[in-house]
Design a protein around this nucleic acid. Sequence first.
DNA 1: CTCGCGGGTTGACTTGGGGTCAACCGTTCG
DNA 2: CGAACGGTTGACCCCAAGTCAACCCGCGAG
Lengths: 218, 218
Amino acid sequence: MPSSTRRRLIEAAVRRFYRDGFRNVGIDQVLADVGISKTAFYKHFESKDELMLAALELKNIWLQETFRDMIRSHGGPDPAAQLRGLFDVVERVINSDEFQGCIFVNVAMEFPLAHEPAHLAAAEHKRAIESIVRELATEEANADDPAAMAQELCLIIEGAYVTRQVTGDPQSIEVARRVANSVIAARLQDRHGASRDASTNISDGSKRLLLTNKSLSG
Amino acid sequence: MPSSTRRRLIEAAVRRFYRDGFRNVGIDQVLADVGISKTAFYKHFESKDELMLAALELKNIWLQETFRDMIRSHGGPDPAAQLRGLFDVVERVINSDEFQGCIFVNVAMEFPLAHEPAHLAAAEHKRAIESIVRELATEEANADDPAAMAQELCLIIEGAYVTRQVTGDPQSIEVARRVANSVIAARLQDRHGASRDASTNISDGSKRLLLTNKSLSG
DNA sequence: CTCGCGGGTTGACTTGGGGTCAACCGTTCG
DNA sequence: CGAACGGTTGACCCCAAGTCAACCCGCGAG
């Protein structure tokens, strides 16, 4: 059993590191959150870096599950609407109270060199998300090239995250939706009457999700 | 006159901070590059933060100029090709030897809180780039909504930068081009025969730029 | 019962980076 | 000449990461 203290450390670390950035957070702050001494900490983790990696791991599986669940819960017959529903998920993430960008992008920027463990974790996470989107495109839509569409949608999602985070502009989801609609329209076969509404600004799924809206992070 | 030493400090700072991240770089490394003592440094700058801000300022004007120049030098009669030419610039940036993402995004991620000076500088830079793109869309193309198109293209560019930086995938420019082509096709009036080639994968301007390809950073 | 062990404590310590300070040096320019 | 400028050295402070020794407590097994 991973000793509930370890868990609590990881969770506190996620919160702190995500909000303030890894290098900006002293280990002491995390320790204060958990109510533990430094010496005790180093019996659970070898280093601050290892704590961060554990935090990323947690976020990684958690986010994949959340993404999958939320997409599934948007089950509808229309493949184009399904794909657009992706951006309802992104919207929830972006509009969550504590949104500070995608934690994996953040960490990849703090550790710019590709070989660093944190950077690798970020890359792996992105691959995982892309493969979720690819599944969706393959199974549920009549796309002419699901893999290409997944790449495109993921690039748009990244753009939405980072634009929102850097500029603070809450419009970026709407921009992303418009771009996504263009891409989806271009990629989808001309069935279901879904191909020619490329520049409608607001997805029809926008209002479907009105849940708690807490504690999300891309 | 800003005392060429100051300039050299800024330039060394740009290199170091960009490659390794701000917090990862000790001031001593920058000082070693320039060949100056710590005390001397603090006669030029109040703090490491101020050095970083100066470095961002330099990059900001430099990048704006570069962007403007490179776009202008792609002057051609076809508005759609003009807009697509934007992505030749992005491609050069992304494929430059020392590409490590957009330095402004990087710094905005290292300083996630919106009120921090570095974060503000990043936001301002992005606004400036967007207004350059908006100019282009307004002057040179028959876009139905230039402002909206500028937002969309900038979001795509961000997506290309960050995807490339996080995953290391050099394909991301091609993905971005495809997405951009969809958007441009959807946004452009149906003149010049430019509207229905939305999913052609490679822009025709790709090969036009074969210059030195050194020292660019988004 | 006691021994070991897991989880925790304290306090003192080292190392490294940001940043300060005092004192000194050489060139240039009015 | 002397002030101002750009530079030096070496000692110093503070803070955060990480180490170490010593101690405490509860608990299950021999």
